[in-house]
Nucleic acid binder design. Structure first.
Lengths: 192, 192
DNA sequence: TGAGTAAGTTACCGCCGGTAGGTTACTGAC
DNA sequence: GTCAGTAACCTACCGGCGGTAACTTACTCA
């Protein structure tokens, strides 16, 4: 079998095993076996287990980019562009690239129990935030409250990570950004 | 040394090593050594490496809850409650509980290339989103655009995960929630 | 037809998570 | 005092898995 052909097959099998077992529990031997090939071939082609994962993600990354950009290009207005991009994103996560989806959801290396513990902590924070929203926006329907709670949780975590590379942004700045965004979103800056 | 005393020390050392090396590269032998104790003691007390991490997180979780709830209790209005809660959250990530922070933030220190690849993909999506924001809200200052981009990225990822447990919410619903929230935040539902 | 090369293999190493089984050392009852 | 009971702690080991060295087909083409 030719190199590019074999590479593609290996990526397919790796995605499968990563998705089934999680990255840590996935054994290189099993991936090799599913390819009908011996382990050193994987190392020949991808260097390491991390390298194999990286290659999987590179492929998914390209796919995600193509899909979202194509969707956005069809938009008829600024708002429509955003909406189409987001629909494409959620559909991509739904249907394609189980490995990639897996990785977005949990850090590469984390044991399942730890993931559950993090989720548990998020649930704890969710209650606080949902309570805050109900107080702040008593008119919001419950489904909206729940969805917005998740958005805020994710936004906070992401902003916290981003701040580690932007030390000039203080904790107070970040909180201010979050609350501003929660209150009015982009409305204050919109044209017209 | 008594059991509870030793346990606390082990958690402290484990947090330290996890934070320094990352979970995967952290060796139980090293944690044991820093405690001045042999490895089987760790297993006696926490069962496994995963168990040790879990125990670290349980402690951090309690601390985070206490800190944010206390901060929110001092709020003078609905908006103030949200703001105080978020300041407390960001400060917690800043200063305390390196293990907990580790799970939220990716190991920038000794980067497995795979983690970098996830970040890379997010950056790719960031460009799309930041472009959308600039189009959608041309009046927004650059610092705000960047911060909001991160919030949206995190919010999308979180919402995608949440949807896996709420199959009744379609991709289109999720996207609609996101764009609604981006446009006006909680404003449409606020009292007064 | 044989040099060069690319695909593929076997058989191994070493690290590290995890364990079996034993050793101090302190307590308290007789 | 001494001896059972127990709780903290150790040495010495195992097995799985990521990773590698060294070798073997098998195909191509001057």
């Amino acid at each position: 079998m030719s190199r590019p052909e074999r590479e593609r097959q290996m990526l397919d099998m790796a995605e499968e095993v990563f998705a089934e077992r999680g990255f840590r529990a996935a054994a290189m031997d099993e991936i090799a076996e599913r390819c009908g090939v011996s382990k050193p071939m994987l190392y020949e082609y991808f260097g390491s287990k991390d390298g194999l994962l990286q290659a999987c993600m590179a492929r998914s990354k390209a796919e995600l980019y193509a899909v979202t950009q194509r969707a956005m290009a069809d938009g008829t207005s600024a708002e429509d562009v955003l909406l189409r991009g987001m629909v494409a994103y959620f559909e991509f996560i739904d249907a394609h690239a189980p490995t990639f989806a897996l990785l977005m959801r949990q850090p590469v290396d984390t044991p399942p129990a730890a993931v559950e513990a993090v989720e548990d902590t998020r649930r704890q924070q969710s209650e606080l935030i949902a309570g805050g929203i109900r107080l702040f926006a008593p008119g919001a329907p419950e489904a909206t409250v729940l969805a917005y709670t998740e958005i805020i949780i994710g936004g906070c975590e992401r902003l916290a990570l981003w701040r580690t590379q932007h030390p000039e942004v203080t904790a107070r700045d970040a909180a201010r950004h979050m609350t501003d965004f929660c209150r009015q979103g982009l409305a204050p800056f919109m044209a017209g």
